[in-house]
């Protein structure tokens, strides 16, 4: 029996292994892209998954409200003491 060249064997493993890994991921990428298109087409209304209706407060308004609350609390504390 001919002497097996282990380095050559290892190189063959490498070709096979990298080939399968890339093939797997390539198909995965394609399927995922297709899936994204299909879902965007047939279930479009859900597409933007918003966090359950965070009240759309603009920051300035929010700041003013916080300021008012702080003022009220300090007022209340001052009155108490």
């Amino acid at each position: 029996m001919a002497e097996v060249n282990y380095v050559m064997e290892a190189l063959k493993f490498m070709v096979l292994g990298m080939g399968v890994v890339f093939l797997f991921l390539f198909i995965l990428v394609k399927v995922v892209e297709l899936q994204a298109k299909l879902i965007a087409k047939y279930f479009p209304e859900n597409t933007p998954i918003k966090a359950p209706a965070t009240p759309a407060v603009d920051t300035e308004d929010e700041n003013r409200r916080v300021a008012a609350i702080i003022a009220a609390v300090t007022e209340f504390r001052n009155n108490k003491s």
Partner: peptide, 17 residues
């Protein structure tokens, strides 16, 4: 970018050699 996760597996097969 998934393909990058494939390229990094060269670490496995390269070091096999």
């Amino acid at each position: 970018t998934a393909m990058l996760g494939g390229a990094a597996q060269f670490g496995i097969f390269g070091s096999l050699v």
